[in-house]
Design a binder for these strands. Sequence first.
DNA 1: AGCACGCCGACT
DNA 2: GTCGGCGTGCTC
Length: 804
Amino acid sequence: MITVAQVIVDVAAYPVDRPFDYSVPAEMTQIIEIGSRVKVPFGPRNVLGFVVAIKNETDVPLEKIKPVSQLLDFEPVLTAEMLELAKWLKNETICYEIDALQVMLPSALRAKYEKIVNLQTDIEVLPRALQEVFRTAPHVNLNVFEKNNLLTELKQALNNKQVSIENIVKQKGKVKEVRKVQITQDVQKLMEIHQQISNRAKKQKQLVEWMQNHAGEVITPEVIYKEAGTSSQVLKSVVELGAAAFVQEEVFRDPFAKEVQKTKFLSLTDEQSSALNQIMAAIDDKQPETFLLHGVTGSGKTEVYLQTIAKVLSKGKEAIVLVPEISLTPQMTERFRSRFGEMVAVMHSGLSVGEKYDEWRKIHQGKVKVVVGARSAVFAPFENVGIIILDEEHESTYKQEDSPRYHARDVALWRAGYHQCPVILGSATPSLESFARAKKNVYKLLTLKDRALKQSLPKVEIVDMRDELKKGNRSMFSQSLVESIHTRLEKNEQIVLFLNRRGYSSFVMCRDCGTVLQCENCDISLTYHRKNEKCKCHYCGYEIHVPKTCPQCQSDHIRFFGTGTQKVEEELAKLFPGARVLRMDVDTTRTKGSHEQLLQAFGDGEADILLGTQMIAKGLDYPNITLVGVLSADTSLHLPDFRAAEKTFQLLTQVSGRAGRHEKPGEVVVQTYTPEHYAIELSQAQDYEPFYEREMHMRHHAGYPPYYYLALIQVSHEDVLMAADYAGKAVEWLRSQLSFKVSIIGPTASGISRLQNRYRYQCLLKYKVEPDLIPTLLQLIKIYRSNWIKKGINLTIDLDPNMI
DNA sequence: AGCACGCCGACT
DNA sequence: GTCGGCGTGCTC
């Protein structure tokens, strides 16, 4: 009897986005399982694949069937649930099945491909240049030839069958290793070597002498440098002489570097216990119910999560907690670790590939029962999930921006259905979609109106910057804000200043002709960075020095405009000379861990003012913060996005929540040019429901979610005409296929009409219920993939886009 | 996607 | 005559 494995191969392309049948060699039949990774021959090369089914017959002619060449996992890496979820994702987000499978695994388990050139004949028959390369070994990585410019010679040798090229599959993830030095056991040999070394090489002699006393030991190079008083150069020479050898030794990453103090349950308010009881009931009844936990900032949502998790754990089940990447601070994760100790795994982008792999393995092997992580943690390979929690449910980071374009909330709901467990969506400012569902009783609404410690919400003052301008105040600080800052500085309390920078960064302009420095590849003005006097494109990374004269008119009246954090920092220094300011933006948080360090420093009182962009809006919870200033509330309001008002309201509410979370009362100053806008007005009292009503009305009027679903189709090409032409073709085709109930808007040029030298057009579909939509879009993708792709067109479909 | 096969123009 | 351009088609 033949055993056949159906394999999804690691090739993201339309014609191969289906299972291929492979025969399973006899020695593998007992151990191969669904969800295992395998190496398989595919056409002329070898690729990685996932076993999605095992059966005993096949429709494929036997002569076509090749055998699996290697089984990579003794334990399958994907469960049956994940394979099913991948199929759902493929259809739901229109992506390749392989992409859906890969996104569920840590990148360490993905494949790395290399090409190896094998020598097939005697080395002497080769041209000189090639002989050099093969001198050390008969198998050489192809990139060595590329580096040495030997591709022509290599091609020749290939034609003459003197060498062959082999595709090999490697694992990306590796066990962490350190380089150590193994000193030879043979003292005699060390003495011989000592003899050989010329008397001029004093350091080398010294090192070998030292080695004679440490024969056979394995030591790190650093220790040797220190003890023998040598350098890496000397050690290298001595190793070449054969006195010692470099070896790799495995070490294990220590995830729990610091012990945490266990904490106990906090007592709950009536609102909290009522919410908790309802969730507990759903857990007991194994109901896949979705709860929307709507609680003002500081109302103690986290404590509800913690006690829910305790309940789930007591039932022997596991819990998944999702938080937005940006608020995944040590402060947040500490709370979970301090309650559940070593039962917790943490997953976020700050971890190295290896660390992520280690955390994933802890989940996979059942060593932990709780995972706290960003978006991708929704795929945590638990097999008995008891609860899934999405904190800050409205955050746009829960949607992945590239393929597979999934939303963690949708995946969570799917998994909850599979495991028959509840989901908690928590937020102070729920997304309109979720709140609308709660109103329609699709989700169960749980409300926490009061702050847990009964602190009053901070007093919010809205300052009309137009009045300031009339008063002759042209700075970016209103009089009121300046006064408030002074007061706090005197009282030694802390201040957070928030600069809503999106689309409002510094640019460089010529004052004579008005030319603004633009990116060469994108239709975007360059952002000025004072630190290195450079102008940078935030989309493609293009960078130039600030020119001395205008490239258009050669005038030297060239200067930068706009309000970046750096500029605010300078002005702060002028206004408050003694104040210690910490700046947090992309520039100061680039390196790993710097984000945490800065927050820690601020928490420890090392600065008076924290100045930053979006990234400081969340998770910041220090008792000494009593003033929050929003420098320009409206910048996010005027973005060409139907969610602009919602985003602004969320942001202002979120930021205001940073002040006065503990004993000291908080104050918030919001500066704006449009104080009459409802998003700003209603954020003053953190009045969610009135805002919800207003905004829903707008959405209804304009035909946006949650009343309609959206699909965004983007077409790009190096040539404007081609991009426009094919965007038109796509729209034309969709019009002919879809019913009149779907409104098709476009094609129009995208918000950023050129990115990385590609012109971009888009078209927006609005629809209510349209069963034919997905199949029609799949058809469009088919047309694109079979014909348009060759012409250099790039087409993407984003269902439920975040931004338009 | 990547790679081989295969059919036409410009060179040793 | 051969080398190499890239159009076409297949991958279990």
